[in-house]
Amino acid sequence: MSSQILQLVLGLLAMPAVVLAIILPGELAIRRFPQKRQSSLRPWIWLSPVLALVGLVIAYPLAASIVFSFRDAMASKWVGFSNFVWAFGSAMRPVLVNNVLWIVVFPLLTAVLALSAAIMLDRVKYERIARTFLILPTAMSFVAGAVIWKMMYTYEPPMQPQTGTLNAIWTAVTGRMPIAWLIDRNVNNYALIFVAVWMSIGVATLILSAGVKNIPRELVEAARIDGAGEWSIFRFVTLPSLWPTILVVLTTQAIFSLKVFDIVYVMTNGSFGTDVIANRMYTELFVKQNLGTASAIAVLLLILASPVIFMNIKQIKSGGGE
């Protein structure tokens, strides 16, 4: 325990120390140069801690992963494209199919629910309180969310008292057999996706609420005077104005679907046909100890994420951030 405290103190001192130890001597060193040269050197002094950090944690692993993906399990010799052949082969196919399901269902469901929530909350006076309820799950870890929903999905054999909330409601309302939510292959992937929706809706609603409030009131009033009903206002004013915001939500959630790990890891650990790319990568790396295939999966994730990466860059470039 004392070693932990020591590390805490060390970490708290090290962070500002590193920053100051680079910037202050750097500034002193360039002080003797003329103005113009100072201002061309200065950015690199200030950026050096960030460049070192991002270089180490992102740029280097990016390059290394690409290299490893062409090497064998121990990263000791080149194997060409065989890791990728494996990644697109029959072993990975069900995993990829699951991820496609995630990428399609999760963003859409989240966006639709969050949009409805944003529009409804905009019209009630207790918006802040209602919003807090929606955000609560966001503050929790996916692990905690998974534990909670494992309880919600609890399955007891038929005729036993159902202790899981969902099955208790289901059997009471429909009078049918309880459902094994996490095992039944017809529903288990959707059950997992819903947990992610439950946890993500808070942030999505916040973003869409901001969008809803950004719609000029005059626009809605003009439409109302032009004779538009609620549905027409939604269809012709709200939705088009919100479209860029909805796109932000959809892309963010799509990226999340690629990375999803914790929920599946805790709830099913990939069994019963629920495995996804990120969990498979963990298995390859730590169970099968295969650097090559794990890296190939990582590169595959990168390729799948790249359209969104470039879309974001393009959007910022065309005006947003600059």
């Binding site: 290394a64 992963s65 994420a305």
Partner: peptide
């Protein structure tokens, strides 16, 4: 600008990508 855009791109990078090289490092 290029550096700023790189930061925008890095935001959405899947963290799985960093695991293997970081572990070795």
């Amino acid at each position: 600008i290029a550096l700023f855009l790189a930061m925008v791109g890095f935001q959405v990078l899947p963290p799985q990508l960093v695991l293997v090289p970081m572990l070795k490092f």
